[in-house]
Amino acid sequence: MSNKLKTNLKMKNVIITSFILALILSSCADKSQAPAPAAPLLPVLAVSSANTITDTEYPASIQGTVDVEIRPQVSGNLDRVLVDEGAYVTKGQSLFKINERPFREQLNNALASLHAAEAALINSQLEVDKLTPLVQNKVVSDYQLKTAKASQKIAAANIEQAKAMVESARINLSYTNVTAPVSGYIGRLPKKQGSLVSAADIEPLTKLSDVHEVFVYFSLGETDFINFKAHYTGNTIGDKIKKLPPVTLILADNNAYEKSGKIDMVDGQFDKNTGAITLRATFPNANGTLRSGNTGKIRLGLQHDDAILIPQSATVEMQDKIFVFTVNNENKVNKMPIIVIGKSGVNYLISEGVKSGDQIVLSGIDKLQEGQLIQPEKATSKVAQIINKK
């Protein structure tokens, strides 16, 4: 190849290389001069204070107004079981029948003893009647008459004792018919017909629950109880109880019970083991929906004046802490931790973190970063309601 041809090839390579470098530099220059992405347009709400009611839920246990164990008061064979498990019974209705023959014989024996005592009294009276004129005529000594009168008193006492034995035998006989002390629902029946039962048995014949009303027991910690008392006026706990609003029972399926209840009892002291005090609310239960042994939650509402409310949808939870994004005067966001002390509907009640007048971002907070610039859009009340529903 000639020198001239080599020189031409080198010149072409230089030109091509220069062109490629120019393209690369031009591309880099275009990228460095590309416009920054626009700040996101996000709805912003001014925090304000308002009067509100917060709902706090406490685990609760349900009992009938009367939960009684049905136990035999005499020993014997269970002749008949007159009810079925789960049945509704009325006060005085027969539930069980214990073999009564031994107790009827005891009654007959007691009656016989009473009749013998009555005859002895008659005999002693005859003796007194015989000796009285003889003593008056000084035929016999006064000592014999006094002895006869003493025997008469012993015979009268024996009658009283015999009457008591008869009454005791009648009571024991009546105990063979086990009846319902109150109206209510029958529990399990561990004893079957033919079983030997005794008053000393560990297990009762059954349990009977009167649930036309139910007692719902729940506990408050010391701090909650102090706050609870502070919200209501009255010199005593009894005065405060009278002014308490109705409470709601949340059942195990998270649905609210159809009837409201009334707190009517506060325990006299705190449990030293749990540090909590027990309260009782009474609920009507005419339909028998609630049964003894049910569980649920008591929803207790507390009034708060000038409370700071934050929509739950405007918060983000990280590492057991809750944050909101506030907006400063330069439209930059700041991640601010807040202290939640309760809930009111779809809002959090705040004690620390933000104050009335602060601006917070309502939505789109999942992609925000500390110090990011945004375009705030003032949220109308209608917009806020839509966001809260989400």
Score class of each variant (00 low, 15 high):
3 N>Q: 12
6 K>E: 10
13 N>R: 10
14 V>Y: 13
17 T>G: 15
19 F>E: 14
21 L>F: 07
26 S>C: 08
31 K>C: 04
32 S>N: 08
33 Q>L: 12
38 A>C: 04
41 L>T: 14
42 L>K: 06
52 T>D: 06
53 I>A: 14
61 S>N: 06
63 Q>K: 06
82 L>V: 08
86 G>Y: 02
86 G>I: 13
86 G>M: 10
89 V>E: 03
92 G>C: 02
92 G>K: 00
99 N>T: 09
99 N>W: 00
102 P>K: 03
103 F>Y: 15
106 Q>K: 01
106 Q>L: 03
110 A>M: 06
113 S>P: 00
115 H>S: 12
118 E>K: 03
121 L>Y: 05
125 Q>V: 06
128 V>Q: 02
133 P>T: 12
136 Q>P: 11
141 S>D: 13
145 L>G: 06
146 K>N: 09
152 Q>R: 04
155 A>H: 01
156 A>T: 12
157 A>K: 00
159 I>D: 09
159 I>H: 03
163 K>A: 07
163 K>W: 04
164 A>G: 06
165 M>V: 04
166 V>C: 05
167 E>N: 15
173 L>E: 10
177 N>Q: 07
177 N>G: 04
183 S>I: 09
185 Y>Q: 11
186 I>V: 15
186 I>C: 05
187 G>W: 01
190 P>V: 13
191 K>P: 08
194 G>Q: 03
199 A>V: 12
201 D>R: 01
203 E>V: 15
204 P>H: 04
208 L>K: 09
208 L>C: 11
212 H>A: 12
214 V>S: 06
217 Y>D: 11
219 S>K: 07
219 S>P: 07
221 G>P: 03
222 E>I: 09
225 F>V: 10
225 F>I: 10
234 G>V: 10
234 G>Q: 03
237 I>N: 09
237 I>P: 00
238 G>S: 14
242 K>S: 14
250 I>S: 06
251 L>M: 14
251 L>Y: 04
253 D>P: 07
255 N>Y: 05
256 A>M: 01
258 E>R: 00
262 K>H: 03
262 K>P: 01
266 V>M: 08
267 D>G: 14
275 G>L: 11
276 A>K: 15
286 A>N: 14
289 T>A: 05
291 R>M: 13
296 G>Y: 00
296 G>R: 00
298 I>K: 06
301 G>M: 08
304 H>P: 07
304 H>N: 10
307 A>G: 08
310 I>P: 07
311 P>I: 07
312 Q>V: 15
313 S>E: 12
315 T>F: 03
317 E>V: 15
322 I>A: 01
323 F>P: 13
331 N>Y: 04
332 K>G: 11
336 M>A: 02
338 I>A: 06
339 I>K: 15
342 G>Q: 04
344 S>M: 03
344 S>A: 09
347 N>E: 02
350 I>G: 00
350 I>E: 02
351 S>R: 07
352 E>L: 09
353 G>H: 08
353 G>C: 13
356 S>R: 00
360 I>S: 12
361 V>Y: 00
375 Q>L: 08
376 P>H: 09
378 K>D: 08
378 K>T: 15
378 K>Y: 06
378 K>P: 03
383 V>S: 03
384 A>L: 11
385 Q>P: 02
385 Q>W: 01
390 K>W: 02
